[in-house]
C-alpha cells in the first residue's frame, strides 16, 4: 500500500510538472502514467472519469486526480494524487511571480514557449485519438462524435448539454 501511494503521488507530481497547457493537455500524460505504465485502470474507466470531471465543478486536472487516486487507493490515494498534481504549481509559481519582469523579457523562455505550444496541442490531439480508439467502437458512436463536433462548431453548444445528449443517445441506442 505504501508503495502504491508513493507511486500515485510521484505520478501526479510528474503529470503536474510536465503538464503545460492545462487539463486537456495533461490527459495524454495521465493516460500514459495511469493506464500504460501502472495499469491502474482501463481506458473506458478513464474516459468515464473524464466525462465525470466535465460534468462537475472545478479544474479537470484536480477532478481526475482525485477520482483516479480514490479508485486506486481510497481516501489517502485521492489526497496524495491531488496534492501531487498541485505541488509543482506551488513550487514554481512563486519564483515565477518574483521574477515576473525578467520572465517576460527572457528571450530563451519566450522561444521555448513557441515550441511548447504546438507540443501541447499535439498532446491534446493525441489524447483525442487515444480516447477515440476505445470510445468510438461502432457506427453509432462515430455518429455521436460527428454530431457533437457539428453542434460544437456550428452552434457552440455547451459541453454539459452535449454530455446530457450523449447520455440520452446512449440510453436509446445501447440500452
Amino acid at each position: 500500500m505504501f508503495f502504491v501511494l508513493l507511486d500515485l503521488f510521484l505520478s501526479y507530481v510528474k503529470i503536474g510538472f510536465f503538464g503545460f497547457g492545462g487539463g486537456y493537455a495533461m490527459l495524454a500524460l495521465m493516460e500514459h502514467e495511469i493506464i500504460r505504465v501502472h495499469g491502474w485502470m482501463t481506458m473506458p474507466e478513464f474516459i468515464d472519469i473524464i466525462a465525470v470531471a466535465e460534468m462537475t465543478p472545478g479544474p479537470i486536472a484536480i477532478n481526475s486526480a482525485t477520482f483516479v487516486g480514490y479508485n486506486v487507493a481510497g481516501l489517502p490515494g485521492a489526497t496524495l494524487a491531488t496534492l501531487g498534481v498541485i505541488l509543482p504549481s506551488l513550487l514554481l509559481i512563486i519564483p515565477a511571480a518574483k521574477i515576473v519582469s525578467y520572465f517576460y523579457q527572457h528571450r530563451g523562455l519566450q522561444r521555448a514557449l513557441t515550441g511548447i505550444h504546438p507540443a501541447v496541442i499535439a498532446l491534446i490531439g493525441f489524447a483525442a485519438i487515444v480516447v477515440g480508439e476505445s470510445a468510438m467502437v461502432d457506427l453509432k458512436s462515430w455518429a455521436i462524435t460527428a454530431g457533437c463536433l457539428a453542434l460544437l462548431f456550428l452552434r457552440g453548444t455547451h459541453p454539459l448539454l452535449l454530455i446530457a445528449l450523449g447520455a440520452v443517445a446512449g440510453l436509446i441506442l445501447y440500452a
Binding site: 474516459i47 491534446i124 489524447a127 455521436i144 450523449g166
Partner: peptide, 20 residues
C-alpha cells in the same frame, strides 16, 4: 448507466478534439 456512458464516451472525444 453503462448504456448512458457508451453514449457519453464519444462526446468526450468531440470535446477533446474541439479543445485541440
Amino acid at each position: 448507466v453503462q448504456a448512458a456512458f457508451l453514449g457519453i464516451r464519444p462526446v468526450v472525444v468531440a470535446l477533446i478534439a474541439s479543445a485541440a
